[in-house]
Design a protein around this nucleic acid. Structure first.
Length: 158
DNA sequence: GCCAACGTTGGC
DNA sequence: GCCAACGTTGGC
């Protein structure tokens, strides 16, 4: 744990067909790159080593939180922005002035029971999570300590 | 596959 | 700086 800063919590969206919590478990650690939204980028840059992240599966039959990870490396320039072959290529980015950033995420655990978006929406307290708000597409979101505690509490009944 | 909601782009 | 057009996200 660090001094001078509360532990922060985040939610990271991923499409399980592309990269899932099972992939993260297998690889132990993964670079979280390809984020191309300024608000999401700013949140990535605010992440500190040891922050917990909720791995959220989107664009799937049952979207929801499927696992937990941890920030293993703080924000650094996303290498895919320099790669003309990459889907995430950013011609305006330079080495001196990177536009996009990545973090490394380590696997912590897969939830025995995923917390589905439908459950989050129906939950009295979790219902106020950003991810439950309609029209929000933000792929990197802060999670309040209160929401994080509920999500992490195994005895929380859904 | 539909489409609402949102972000980005670019002409003016 | 406005805003229409377009592209993308992501639940349903």
């Amino acid at each position: 744990m660090r001094l001078n800063r509360e532990h922060c919590f985040w939610l990271l969206k991923t499409e399980p067909g592309t990269f899932s919590i099972d992939d993260l478990r297998r690889k132990r650690k993964e670079r979280w790159d390809g984020v191309r939204n300024y608000q999401a980028r700013n949140f990535l840059r605010a992440m500190k080593r040891g922050d917990q992240v909720f791995v959220y599966h989107s664009s799937t039959k049952e979207p929801g939180v499927f696992g937990v990870g941890e920030v293993a490396r703080e924000a650094y320039p996303d290498p895919t922005q320099y790669d003309p072959e990459s889907l995430y290529y950013e011609p305006k980015a330079t080495r001196d002035n990177p536009r996009w950033f990545a973090v490394d995420i380590a696997f912590v655990k897969k939830l025995q029971n995923p917390i589905l978006l439908s459950q989050i929406k129906n939950h009295q307290k979790l219902g106020s999570m950003i991810v439950a708000k309609r029209g929000v597409r933000l792929s990197v979101q802060p999670v309040s300590p209160r929401h994080a505690r509920l999500l992490l509490n195994k005895r929380c009944s859904f």
